[in-house]
Nucleic acid binder design. Structure first.
Lengths: 224, 224
DNA sequence: GTATTCCTTCGTTGCGCGTCGAAACGTAGT
DNA sequence: ACTACGTTTCGACGCGCAACGAAGGAATAC
């Protein structure tokens, strides 16, 4: 007879392979329809429907009806928990099987609404070298070079600050084992990358593909 | 067909009520025998044995044979993941049932090897007021008042520093919804509290009970 | 209206696995 | 030696639940 919150209920929801696949697909950040999630999980629409009900009922997903489609998405907190489970899982299973698809994933991918992978780590290192960010314990805080950088990048720092969401968050990376930049600033930078067409999302996956010019422009803003 | 680590395997292990109960019992930090865990989970020894095999096999538990007993324990990383699942679960289930036992749990309890609950939050606030710690984003870093405090408390800061473990960690609290102090410093302070007999652990549970004198001495070291 | 697409509900099947009883194994004590 | 205790293995039971086929809403398109 335990006391705290019932942890097994939530874990059981994530514990089913089909549901876990759906959730992982949704870490990409964009809302997906029921059939898309069914394909992602490799099950029939009926089965997916049952799973999606359980997930929304458990508070892991939110649903929005748009015409005859039903869009499901996860919130940032859920994505965070899933990512932390991913690092933990990566630690305890030596399934070192770096496939070709995996390589692209490690290089640059979406983590809910910000960048992750090698590119994200390089970005953090560059921001640290420019003293835009200073790593404080397990998080980042803005440093003396911050104002100049935000001016150069065209990011309105004040507009990001008055949100309820923290400006900087250190999101642990399961492939690099190092924290990268999340929070509203991480999201803003990712938006910037997409807006300027430096990179785009591979269709339906979490992989982010940079164009040669985008890579160059990214390197200018975030020199090594 | 997903890519990253298989998250459902781990989640499935935590997803069973009996196993979750065992894991939560082990968050207390001390190693427990197989039968103790069986009682904790409310199942027979045979069933517990099967569960414990799966948990150790999955890397969530480590086992040490001591005579005819087998002691199981979890490491700090696992405890951390479980705690984060607890906050998450507490958020998404409105089981507001603050029983009498629950009240003691909220007041002061063990979180693997450091204090949690109201007392831990008060401690963090006091340390912040004394400028021993400064909250940086989601973590803590030592502040200008640190040296004086450690001298007064009789904690050898240098001995803590050269461990591989981080000195300060912000451990999120499922009952208070605020971060409290974990890491080697959090553990050292909890050791100090136990050593000086200011408080002791309730038999077998995570509840920490303070003596009146202990409460007073604690209040001297950590004034409001 | 009819057709089409998306999603759900119902009913059913079948596998997985948590559970326990009985018994065997290993260690400790006497 | 024998007894006691903690733990595991084996075997079997049975529930739970994921999965699909078929059919029934619900919303759009024509």
């Amino acid at each position: 007879m335990r006391d705290g919150p019932d942890i097994s209920r939530i874990a059981n929801l994530i514990g089913d392979p089909a549901r876990a696949n759906m959730l992982e697909a949704l870490i990409g950040g964009m809302a997906l329809t029921a059939t898309e999630l069914a394909n992602e999980a490799g099950v029939t629409p009926q089965t997916a429907s049952a799973h999606l009900f359980k997930l929304t009922d458990g508070g892991l997903l939110t649903m929005a009806k748009h015409g005859r489609h039903r869009y499901f998405r996860i919130d940032a907190e859920t994505a965070e928990v899933l990512e932390s489970l991913m690092i933990f899982s990566a630690d305890r299973q030596m399934r070192t099987r770096p496939g070709p698809r995996d390589a692209a994933m490690r290089h640059a991918r979406v983590c809910y609404d910000h960048l992750a992978g090698e590119v994200a780590i390089a970005m953090v290192d560059s921001l640290a070298a420019q003293q835009v960010l200073v790593q404080a314990g397990e998080t980042f805080v803005t440093g003396p070079g911050a104002d100049e950088f935000f001016l150069r990048a065209g990011i309105d720092l004040d507009r990001l600050k008055d949100r309820r969401r923290p400006l900087c968050r250190a999101c642990m990376d399961w492939s690099m084992r190092r924290p990268h930049l999340a929070g509203s600033l991480g999201a803003a930078i990712f938006d910037l990358v997409l807006d300027r067409k430096w990179a785009w999302r591979e269709n339906g996956s979490r992989v982010v593909r940079f164009s040669p010019e985008g890579k160059r422009a990214f390197g200018v803003l975030f020199p090594v």
